[in-house]
Simulated assay, not measured.
Amino acid sequence: MRYAYLGPAGTFTEAALLGVEGAREAERVPVSSVPVALAAVRSGEVDAAMVPIENSVEGGVTATLDAVATGGELRIVHEALVPISFVLVAAPGTTLADVRAVSTHSHAWAQVRGWADEHLRGVDYVPASSTAAAALALLPARDGAAGPGREAGFDAAVCSPVVVEQHPELEVLAENIGDNKAAVTRFVLVARPGAPLPRRTGADRTTLVIPLWEDRAGALMEILEQFATRGVNLSRIESRPTGNFLGEYFFSVDVDGHILDARVADALMGLRRVCPSTRFLGSYPRADHKMATVARHHSDGAFREARGWVESLQGGGPSEPGGVAERPVPGTG
């Protein structure tokens, strides 16, 4: 197995990947961005890629939501939750008073802005492809020259403590600087279609891409009612522009349940009727093991009973045991 992940080594994405069974022994390929990782999956260069999809502070990771919504279809086969902790690092000999510009990934910067405003007032922010890439850019080159980060105009970087463990020569200027100490990022392992469907556990998640096929009053309601009438809970829904033209959007949706659950399968059939371009991205076990709450009339058994009753009426025979008892039609005696 070959896995791609947002590199370099030491990123939170690599930490999520290392939690996958067999990943430590497999070949791990660091890449520069989420689109590059997913392109490697589509081309067959790697078997799967670990990418961030949602953060408890910032919400959906737009680079991932957009990249899985277009192009060749992909399947999510696994998810992981990684607690997020940040440190501020710099090249050896640097002090906090020396810092005039800081680099890190945009999602990391959003999670430390409060701390930065208090302790590094007026500091400039320089975007980086990943937290680890920003930190490693500060290290001196082998010939003793300043690292590319210093040349690019930043003096410090926000990264994970794992980077410091791997590169102890980095100067740690501050620890645990996240504004939300309980921050968590959700990562997903993405493979090509045809991979075995993860088994149903009762604590599952299904991810969909639903284009808004018509910009009119009630269009979103028509989508939502496919889930509501079948008792399917939406744990996340976000709108994203398609990029085709202004005002054209798609919805990225997570629902509680597995496609093998009768209520979820029935909702997807209804959704497919009203929006044929709906994209199924996978059903997979939740990393938090949170069981779905399902009312009795939305259970698999209730769907089987209802389907059996309708089929018996279509065939003209008696309803199956447990079906709804027939009642006289008012006015017929």
Rank of each mutant, 00 (worst) to 15 (best):
V264C: 09
A267S: 14
T242S: 10
S239H: 06
Q226L: 04
G218V: 01
M269C: 10
M221I: 07
F251A: 11
F251V: 09
E225V: 13
R263I: 11
E222L: 09
G257D: 07
G257K: 03
R230T: 04
Q226D: 06
S277H: 08
R230H: 06
R286W: 01
D256G: 04
L246I: 14
L224M: 12
A267N: 05
D256Q: 13
R236Q: 11
D254R: 02
A219E: 10
Y284N: 11
D261L: 06
M291V: 15
V232T: 10
I223F: 02
E238I: 10
R236K: 07
A228D: 06
G257C: 12
H297C: 12
R263C: 01
A219L: 10
V264N: 06
Y284W: 04
D254L: 03
L224Q: 12
R286S: 06
A295W: 11
R296H: 14
R230Q: 11
E238C: 11
I223Q: 00
M269A: 15
I259G: 01
A295R: 14
H258F: 01
S283N: 00
P241K: 03
D288I: 05
D261M: 05
T229S: 15
V274S: 02
N233E: 14
G243F: 06
D254S: 08
R279V: 09
E238Q: 12
V264Y: 08
D266Q: 12
L271A: 03
L260Q: 14
E222Q: 13
L268D: 05
G247N: 02
S239Y: 11
G257E: 07
R296D: 15
V294I: 14
T293H: 14
L271M: 03
D254K: 09
L246H: 10
V274G: 04
L220I: 12
L281F: 00
S239E: 09
H289T: 14
F280V: 04
C275N: 12
R296F: 00
A228S: 14
S235P: 00
A228Y: 04
E238G: 12
F250Q: 05
V274P: 00
L224H: 07
A267W: 04
K290W: 12
R286Y: 03
E225T: 12
D261G: 07
R230I: 08
V255D: 06
F250R: 11
V232C: 12
G218Q: 01
G282D: 08
D288L: 10
R230E: 08
L220D: 02
L271C: 04
I237L: 11
R272I: 00
E238T: 15
T229N: 13
A262H: 00
T278M: 15
F245R: 15
E222K: 01
D288G: 04
I237T: 07
R279F: 07
E238R: 11
F251E: 08
A295H: 13
R296K: 13
V274T: 07
R240A: 07
I259V: 15
D256C: 07
S252W: 13
N244H: 12
R230D: 02
Y284G: 12
H289E: 15
T293D: 15
